[in-house]
Write a protein that binds this DNA or RNA. Structure first.
Lengths: 113, 113
DNA sequence: TTTATACTTAAGTGAATGCTTAAGTATTGG
DNA sequence: CCAATACTTAAGCATTCACTTAAGTATAAA
């Protein structure tokens, strides 16, 4: 029942930290596929894929839906958006600081002249 | 000499996967600080901070400079930019796919009418 | 020159991670 | 109904991880 919790930045970045999980996201970015179809290009066991999918789903990066005996996996765009936002926020913070430094250096120059 | 290598997406996301390292980035987003100044709010040993800094530096997310006996750490903006770009690329791929689906559904509708 | 500061490096440890194999359970096609 | 398919779940295992303590090395201050 965990997959309905609000996905945390923590879980999202942890999920993105593994190269295999990032490859899963890359594959799913092209089109939704089944669990078995994921396992083939990744060259790992079905069980391993399922374990990765569990993390990807609870982190909110991927959504899956089981119809009959096959589970179809697809990207859940909101997850990646959250990660992108965190990075954007750090960047604006850093840029604002640079602007302040810039301003400071300018006023110092004006004092001298 | 590793810190002059081209930083890989792999190292960057691995670095961002740890909450302590993300907190280091958050602290450094405000202003550059020394290693000891990092250790205080993180509540971990100096040695642990140094280990995190090593990963952050080889991944290209942080740059450090030692003057006298203190090492000053600051954000290296290119690193975060690379991570942001990866996320953006996945998102545009996914969006393009949705557009194609949209187009397909539209042409199907036109066939019927 | 002694002492305090600011790291640095090495070794060790417990827990988490990513994987495997093996033995399930549902679905579906013949 | 029976067998093949598509997962699912559990247990185990080697490795990596984040951390610690302890013993360094430079640099700066007294």
């Amino acid at each position: 029942m965990k997959q309905f919790d609000k996905p945390s930045i923590d879980l999202i970045f942890r999920a993105l930290g593994d190269p295999t999980r990032r490859e899963i996201i890359e594959i799913l970015s092209e089109k939704p596929v089944s669990v078995t179809q994921l396992a083939v290009p990744l060259n790992i066991s079905l069980a391993a894929v399922v374990q990765h999918l569990q993390l990807l789903e609870t982190s909110g990066l991927v959504r899956t839906e089981k119809i009959g005996r096959t589970r179809t996996c697809r990207i859940e765009p909101n997850g990646l958006a959250l990660a992108g936002k965190w990075i954007e926020n750090r960047r604006t913070l850093w840029e604002r600081r640079l602007d302040q430094l810039d301003l400071y250096l300018k006023t110092q120059k004006e004092k001298k002249s």
